[in-house]
Design a protein around this nucleic acid. Sequence first.
DNA 1: CTGTCATGCTATGTCTGTCGTGGTATTAGG
DNA 2: CCTAATACCACGACAGACATAGCATGACAG
Lengths: 116, 116
Amino acid sequence: MNGISSDVIRGYNDTMILYLLWDHPSYGYEISKQIKSLSQEKYVIKETTLYSAFTRMEKNGYVESFNDDTENGRRRTYYRITESGRAYYLDKCAEWTLTKEVVERFIKEGNDSGNN
Amino acid sequence: MNGISSDVIRGYNDTMILYLLWDHPSYGYEISKQIKSLSQEKYVIKETTLYSAFTRMEKNGYVESFNDDTENGRRRTYYRITESGRAYYLDKCAEWTLTKEVVERFIKEGNDSGNN
DNA sequence: CTGTCATGCTATGTCTGTCGTGGTATTAGG
DNA sequence: CCTAATACCACGACAGACATAGCATGACAG
């Protein structure tokens, strides 16, 4: 198995994107590259998934879009995380901890090396 | 936060059910109770989700259904895990390990400060 | 100048798993 | 009789992921 079935990640795409927006705004293509590299090529988000996530999150108030006028040529839509987005992200982190605990009670691990 | 949003667990319901079928067959209601107790009430699978999971998994050959004739009165459909189901389960466990690694790269917060 | 590639985004419709709603049936207890 | 717990199922809605397709720019090779 090389990748990760998207069903598993479902619900965490938003979280990953918000993580990458935490320190500074970014845009689709860059986020896409970063997810790929940060996950060590293990997860590559689909374009449509990514852009629909942006749309959804903007509708939910987790991000704000804007255009960078200093750029010319290629039109980019940048996204900035909002306070609400930060709160949502942190909430998801807490949920992840909980989820992890729960799922692991149902996982037989014979191939887990080292840590607990 | 009390529970876990089902979007997060999505894709792991099957895994949890198969885990509980590993040693011996079981049936819907019991599985439901066991998920609740084993997750320490943190996750309660919805009935419809559970039964549709059984149907799906039987169609995929991960479980087989049968009736226990020694029981009378309440009609139960028991499910038994198949070899294919065991393989699928183990596959999911491996995937979980991978998923966990990936997701955690995007999680701020008490980052696994303890182990490793 | 034209073709191709990388960049950057959008529209449209399908698929799948979850879940809300509601129904059926048995057994036990008040 | 009524209710609660057990035990299951049908139906339809919904949301997120994704396949497919298209549009537009800029760089660079031939």
